[in-house]
Design a protein around this nucleic acid. Sequence first.
RNA 1: GCCGGCGUGGCGAAACAGGUAGACGCACUGGACUCAAAAUCCAGCGGAUGUUAAAUCCGUGUCGGUUCGACUCCGACCGCCGGCACCA
Length: 814
Amino acid sequence: MFSEIEARWREYWEKTGLYRTPDEPKNKFYLLEMFAYPSGDIHLGHFRNYTIGDVIWRYRKMQGYDILHPFGWDAFGLPAEQAAIKHKIPPDKWTFSNIERSRDTLRRLSISYDWDREIITASPDYYRWTQWVFLKLYESGLVYRDTSFVNWCPSCKTVLANEQVIAGRCWRCDSVVEKRRLEQWFVRITAYAERLLKGLDKLKGWPENIKTMQRNWIGKSEGTEIDFKIEGTDKSFSVFTTRPDTIFGTTFVTFAPEQPLVDELLPIMPNREEVEKYVQQALLKPEIERSFEGREKDGVFTGLYAINPYNGERVAIWVGDYVLASYGTGVVMAVPAHDQRDFEFAKRYGLPIKVVINPPGCSLDPSTMDAAYTEPGIMTNSGTFDGLPSTEGIRRVTEYGEERGFARSKVTYKLRDWLISRQRYWGAPIPVVHCEKCGIVPVPEDALPVLLPPADKVNFAPRGRSPLEDLPEFMDTTCPVCGGAARRDPDTMDTFVCSSWYHLRYTDPKNEGEPFSKRNVNRWMPVDLYIGGAEHATGHLLYFRFITKLLHDLGYLDVDEPAIALFNHGMVLDANGAVMSKSKGNVVSPVELIENYGVDVARIGILFIAPPERELLWSSEGLKGASRFLERVHNFFCNLSGNDEIFDFDQLPDVDKLRYRKLHWAIKRVKDDIENIQFNTAVAAMMEFLNTLGPRFPDDSSIPNYIARRFIKLLAPFAPHLAEEIWHRMGEKDSIFLSPFPDFDSTALVAETVTIAIQINGKLRATIDLPPDSDEEMVVSSALELDKIRKYVEGKRIVKRFYVKNKLINIVVK
RNA sequence: GCCGGCGUGGCGAAACAGGUAGACGCACUGGACUCAAAAUCCAGCGGAUGUUAAAUCCGUGUCGGUUCGACUCCGACCGCCGGCACCA
């Protein structure tokens, strides 16, 4: 029944350019939903996400905002290559046909995107500027090549960033991630660690849990770095510790197997062979196995000793794979008495345990300890520091070492640099060339884009190196500096680079001379509301903030945080709470919903079933309610016509006074709920209002048009097609979204009577209707007139009374 | 283990600056309309006791506490979900 209505208005809105972004915004609002990876078609999770955004757009539009509401496609990525391998479809064909299909679906859903601003990260006019972002990073000294142990997915046959390793497994295919020593491109996001951390405090509109996740991910830790000399050599190393107060308890030090010094020291190690064997073995173990907590810690003694600079003691140097190479210095001072990991290690290998912190009022005996004592206490066995509280010792020990030049305060972060190269075809090529004479040379800006070669010559079968490497027509080039023969970089960029700046491109999507003009970017940025899933908390949302800060620092835009407010919608699961996936066969397509029920019903259904931030167990049962509601709305209002009645409230008949009040009460609730993104209760408020009108629109009303026009506007953000239809049947010529959202009459919210609860000793015994703001005496005396109240009070003494105006009275009797 | 979040009818959920628990909807039950069904409309719908009534008692994961009054605040615990996970 609604399909004809929906088609009419969908076309009308597109034809009249309702969604077009104003060129000169006066009252700007940048509304952004995370763009989509085009894998097949839009699914129910997308539908929920984009419907939430669409409600906001329609509401803000009716409030007169000038809105930028763009959409695009995160179009590079591995699945396109997998499709190429599996189905012999080229990645570009696969991707672009998915985009066609998904865009078509979004249009059928009438989501209010300005399609003139669509961007596709896999198109050369976009990735040209992704390469430009790379060059800016390069020029800023934030890109470097490094040979180190990196995350390697054996199934995708490519390296991964830390953020793409979920509990030791690949984010895409769930394979256990391995370590490989490779030369790769890194972006120094760690240079922005402090600012990324501090910036979170400004983001008042971000959910606390996302900010906490980012804080933990950045993992700032303040401590001390202490230098140790290696006995019998001129070499030294540093350790990082947050507990310098325990330095006198150091009985050995442990190196991570990957620590570069281990290799260097091998030739002089008395236990060289054992160490070599151990290191080799450790490197073979996947991270997930090594990092399993509770696993017995193992290691090997090198035969070398280091000198504790604080007391000159010799401490054994061990290598152990419980030490992380990539955190701190890759070496720890082991204080078994006061660190649980060191304690376990010492117990296993019979290493000495020396107590240097005693709990207040008692002293520990190493021989009877069955766990490390990690709490603060009083320093002991620590030379001149004895008797000092350990919390103060932290500062004093550091100062002592600083004065003597072998220690310093140090801040360490868990955040690692961002590994951005990928050994894949379907991504933005890294714009550098390797020249034998000149080394690494960035491609000049005016030579961008470095285009991907056509897919027809490419062998996509993963072989652990980029497919581009085997294409001489791509690889062979000339050096931009010396003009001699050179080779291109065969790797492509992590797709998170593409999505780290797309919000900026939307402000100026067709600019051919620059990624975006200053004028346009500053006109729209920052994003006023960013909507998406929480799964991007420590990936995309971190890169997105980082690149915005970088481009701000380089003067390309004014703001240094991309989005002032963030909303995370919940996931859509099936009725049993399982994730919808093709392999489980439980996927519900929005297309099937709109074909069976219509867009408006599907929207109301998905918005009403659960609050937007919560996860949603999908069941089409709930759609019946939505469908009945909209049909009632249609039947109520489809035959009304005409303009607002002019009336004097006091002259209205009582029934209409009541309807007037209820209407304004509904307006207030819907308005408040939209602003708080609580669409489920907004829909409930509209249903409730409709219920108060009765089974059909009351024919005794003297203000039918007044009611109808306002109610329809309340409904418009939620069921736009139906609202537009009724609006036009009421004789309007322009879109309902060009008309203002109704304001509520606050005087109408004051009811003629209020229901007051009467409690005796805190238990509800009766209710009574009284005029609003009645005083306490009046309420009590009216209450005592009631038989059911009198029976509780008779023969007793009223000890106390608590009166909450217009709500309740509690009479305490004894 | 640490950090978040959440536990409310048969189901999805409302209400929390402490103040009538269960709005709104689904399902269900009864009734009206109908030859009948569907649709629609009306009524009921947390549990227990109860002469189907009146009424009373119990109820927001569990156990305690604060309070005239607790789903809401505090303490301990149990369960589920998400994030981090040997970070020195």
